[in-house]
C-alpha cells in the first residue's frame, strides 16, 4: 500500500545543506500499521510529510497504492490523509466542526454532506451534538477526535499520523489510541505512525523502523520490540533511556552519528 524507495530529502544548499532523510526504504502492506520512531531531527516526520504531499523537495520513489505522491494526482486525497500532532494548531479557530468536516466533501464534490458529517462524528465517539461547536469549546482530546474525523471524511485507505497523542494527557492518550485501533479494524486502514514514544509504537504497530540522523537504523517487528531485543546499539540505548531514570544509563549515553 505504501512504497518508499531511496527517499532523500535535503534542506538548504551548498555548505549549509542538511540531509534530513537519507536513502530511506520501507514498504507497508494493506491493512498493516507501521511505525517510524526516532529522536528529534531523525527525519521521521519529514519522511511522513513527503507521503502527505507536504514536502515537494525530495528524490527517490514514494507511492501510495501505486500512485506516486510526487505529481499532484487528483486520486491522492481519497487515498491518503494525515492527522497532525497538535490539535490546537490543526483546526481553524473560527471554523465550526461542521465546516472543518464538510470542506473535504465539498472540494471533492461529494453530496449527502449533513448525514456524512454526523456519521463521522459518531464514528469518532463524539456524536452529532458536537457538529456546530467551535474548537475553543472542545478539550484537547475532543479536538483530536475532530481532526481524526476530518482525515476520514474521504474514506482514505491510508492514515498518516504524526505524534497524534504527544500533546495530550495520558488518560486522553489512551482514549485516542483505542479509537485509532478501533477505526483501523473497522475501515481496514493502513497506518503509518510517527512517534518518539516506543511504548505508543509497540501498542499501535505491527512493524517499525528506527531512524537516526535521517537514516533507518533498523527495521523490526513488534514482537522483537516487546522482547527488547534490537540488533543495533543505537536502539538498545533508546530502549534503556525510555525505561525511566537510571544514573548508570545516564553516565554511559553516547551520541551516534
Amino acid at each position: 500500500m505504501i512504497q518508499v524507495r531511496n527517499l532523500n530529502v535535503t534542506f538548504g544548499q551548498g555548505a549549509q545543506a542538511v540531509r534530513a532523510v537519507r536513502d530511506v526504504n520501507f514498504s507497508v502492506a494493506e491493512g498493516e500499521s507501521f511505525g517510524l520512531v526516532g529522536e528529534s531531527g531523525s527525519g521521521k516526520s519529514t519522511a511522513l510529510r513527503v507521503l502527505a504531499g507536504l514536502n515537494p523537495h525530495w528524490t527517490g520513489e514514494a507511492a501510495v497504492a501505486g500512485v506516486s505522491v510526487g505529481q499532484r494526482d487528483a486520486r491522492l486525497p481519497r487515498l491518503v490523509q494525515m492527522v497532525f500532532q497538535d490539535p490546537y494548531a490543526s483546526l481553524h479557530p473560527r471554523h465550526t466542526v461542521d465546516r472543518a468536516l464538510s470542506e473535504p466533501l465539498e472540494i471533492q464534490g461529494i453530496g449527502d454532506v449533513g448525514p456524512r458529517v454526523e456519521r463521522a462524528l459518531t464514528d469518532v465517539g463524539l456524536g452529532p451534538a458536537f457538529r456546530f461547536r467551535y474548537p475553543n469549546q472542545l478539550s484537547g482530546g475532543q479536538r483530536q477526535r475532530v481532526a481524526i474525523a476530518r482525515a476520514l471524511m474521504l474514506e482514505p485507505k491510508v492514515l498518516l499520523l504524526d505524534e497524534p497523542t504527544s500533546a495530550l494527557d495520558v488518560s486522553v492518550q489512551a482514549e485516542i489510541l483505542n479509537l485509532l485501533r478501533r477505526l483501523r479494524r473497522a475501515h481496514n486502514l493502513t497506518m503509518l505512525l510517527v512517534s518518539h514514544n516506543l511504548a505508543v509504537i509497540a501498542h499501535m504497530c505491527d512493524r517499525l523502523a528506527v531512524m537516526n540522523r535521517g537514516a533507518i537504523v533498523e527495521e523490526m517487528d513488534v514482537a522483537t520490540l516487546r522482547r527488547q531485543e534490537p540488533r543495533e546499539a543505537y536502539t538498545r540505548q533508546l530502549l534503556l533511556a525510555s525505561r525511566g531514570y537510571d544514573r548508570e544509563v545516564a553516565a554511559n549515553i553516547i551520541t551516534y552519528d
Binding site: V170, S171, A199, A202
Partner: peptide, 20 residues
C-alpha cells in the same frame, strides 16, 4: 492507578487500554 494503567507499555500486548 487509573493513570498508570492507561499508559501503553513496551512489553504488554493489551488490545484495549483502560481509560480513566
Amino acid at each position: 492507578q487509573g493513570l498508570l494503567d492507561s499508559l501503553p507499555r513496551i512489553d504488554d500486548d493489551r488490545a484495549e487500554l483502560p481509560t480513566l
